[in-house]
Amino acid sequence: MYGIIYKAFEQYVIDTFDVETWNITISKSLVSMNTKTIDQPYNDAITFEIAKQLSKSTNLAIDKILFQLGEYVVKITREKYLLIMQSRDNDFKDYLLNLPSFHNRMLLIYPKLTPPEFKVTVVNDTILMLHYYTNTSGMKEYIKGYLNGLVRAFESNVEIEHIVSRQLNKFEDVFKISW
């Protein structure tokens, strides 16, 4: 989602706190990004750094910030970039099944993109496993929030369970999603 995540992060902070909190958080995080455009490289390390600084500024737990940000990314994408949502499909399950190929296509379009990786394993008609790989530890709550936002967006009745979190060469989180 390239710079959409940064735009959503800015809007989340402004809506939840205020513009001053956003400006302070960005200045203390020492990251460089432009929230005016979605056409810029993204990586989880920057998101985590901003969340860490926001946590320090607001005394809100970083896990709560990451969860809420994940939800907000879906909200902003639906409100401002609906075609991106629709390009992945019209229901929760198909959206998740298309998530890995969407990220692969984005890598072709935006070669400087450093997104996390997704893999979906279909267990049966009512269960799938979503594997999330990143170089940045601590992003599990972000993905939980993102999935929760998708559940709301697609008005789905699913159960999401975090079943694995381990470090190989990358950090991997696996979510069991049941209908």
Rank of each mutant, 00 (worst) to 15 (best):
Ile163Glu: 12
Tyr132Arg: 02
Thr25Val: 03
Ile38Leu: 10
Asp44Asn: 15
Leu168Met: 11
Glu161Val: 08
Gln167His: 13
Leu168Gly: 08
Gln167Ala: 10
Ile46Asp: 12
Leu60Tyr: 10
Ile84His: 07
Gly145Asn: 01
Tyr132Trp: 01
Ala153Phe: 13
Phe154Asn: 04
Lys144His: 10
Thr114Asn: 15
Thr134Phe: 02
Thr37Met: 02
Leu147Tyr: 02
Lys119Gln: 13
Arg88Pro: 02
Arg88Glu: 05
Asn23Ile: 00
His131Phe: 09
Lys36Asp: 14
Lys112Thr: 11
Ile62Ser: 01
Asp44Arg: 05
Asn124His: 04
Leu60Ser: 06
Arg166Leu: 10
Lys112Cys: 05
Arg88Ala: 01
Thr114His: 12
Glu20Cys: 11
Asp91Leu: 06
Glu172Cys: 05
Leu113Ile: 03
Ser87Gly: 02
Tyr2Trp: 10
Ser32Phe: 09
Val151Gln: 10
Ala51Arg: 01
Asn59Gly: 02
Lys36Asn: 14
Glu49Arg: 15
Glu117Asp: 14
Ser178Pro: 02
Leu66Ile: 10
Ala51Pro: 00
Ala51Gly: 04
Asn135Gly: 13
Lys80Cys: 11
Asn135Phe: 12
Asp125His: 08
Thr37Trp: 01
Trp179His: 12
Ala51Phe: 00
Val13Lys: 03
Ile163Val: 14
Asn135Asp: 15
Lys80Glu: 15
Glu155Tyr: 09
Ser57Asp: 13
Leu108Tyr: 13
Asp44Gln: 13
Ser29Pro: 01
Ile38Met: 07
Lys7Glu: 07
Ile160Leu: 13
Val13Glu: 09
Thr25Lys: 00
Lys64Val: 14
Leu60Pro: 00
Lys176Arg: 14
Phe154Thr: 02
Thr77Phe: 01
Trp179Ser: 15
Lys52Glu: 07
Ser32Thr: 11
Asp94Val: 14
Ile177Gln: 02
Thr121Gln: 11
Pro111Ala: 02
Leu82Gly: 07
Met129Lys: 09
Phe154Asp: 00
Ile127Trp: 06
Glu159Gly: 12
Val164Lys: 13
Thr114Lys: 15
Asp91Phe: 05
Pro116Ser: 11
Ile50Glu: 01
Leu60Lys: 12
Leu66Asp: 06
Val120Pro: 01
Lys170Arg: 13
Gly70Met: 08
Ile127Tyr: 09
Asp18Thr: 06
Phe9Ile: 12
Val31Glu: 05
Tyr142Gln: 03
Glu20Thr: 14
Val120Glu: 03
Val13Ile: 15
Leu107Trp: 00
Ser165Glu: 15
Ser29Cys: 01
Tyr142Cys: 04
Asp39Leu: 13
Thr58Arg: 04
Trp179Cys: 08
Asp18Phe: 04
Asp63Gly: 12
Thr21His: 08
Ala153Val: 03
Ile14Gln: 10
Tyr146Asn: 04
Asp15Val: 05
Ser101Val: 12
Leu107Cys: 09
Pro100Gln: 02
Ala45Gly: 08
Glu20Ile: 14
Glu141Asp: 15
Met129Gln: 08
Glu10Ala: 09
Val31Gly: 03
Lys80Phe: 11
Ile50Val: 12
Ile26Gln: 04
Thr25Pro: 00
Ser32Asp: 09
Leu66Pro: 04
Glu159Cys: 11
Leu82Glu: 14
Lys80His: 11
Thr37Gly: 03
Arg152Cys: 06
Trp22Lys: 01
Tyr133Glu: 10
Val31Phe: 05
